[in-house]
Design a binder for these strands. Sequence first.
DNA 1: TATACGATCACCT
DNA 2: GGTGATCGTATAC
Length: 195
Amino acid sequence: MGRLRRDFYRRSTLTVARELLGKRLVSVMGGQRLSGLIVEVEAYIGEGDAACHAARGRTPRNEAMYGPPGHAYVYFIYGMHHCLNVVTEEEGFPAAVLIRALEPLEGLEIMRRHRSGKPDRELTNGPAKLCQAMAIDRGFNGVDLCAGGVLFIEEGRIVAQEEIGASPRIGIKASEVARSVAWRFYLQGNDFVSR
DNA sequence: TATACGATCACCT
DNA sequence: GGTGATCGTATAC
């Protein structure tokens, strides 16, 4: 039901980021659905954004960001973690939304196994944690979320504008401007928002 | 070929 | 509050 179409992603990254809150991220493993409500995201917008992986131009690693909207950009970092992004805007313009946290909905048993018995609150309350819980790794880099495969996003619940909080992005070590813009969005009061 | 470091996490005090 | 883990990637030599 209600899978997001490519037109949803082919818009301003800040708009897509805000509207992804309350949507449902789904992966299908061996016929089993793993899913969660998106409760926290961050926007990374173009080569002019010092914190964006595309800030120093096109490389093999960030290739997916330059591709068509509605695809996954998955990268490996700190020697052990994966993070999931959704590519936005027109093909050729490098931008994406980092999925930072989910409220787990389906496949809790499997997620607990992937997260070695961590309490439910800590299953998906961080960008690398949710990838571990849903078994998302670099094999998912470049996957088309609109093609109806193993990874996609569905309609979730209605979110009121007043529910949405904004803040600077977490963990980036870039220029002052990059660190000060409020391009992180989250559902205020949700138990699964990180930190 | 060599080196420095990162859109994090878990565990420590 | 702080720090170690651990390695792919970009950049320099």
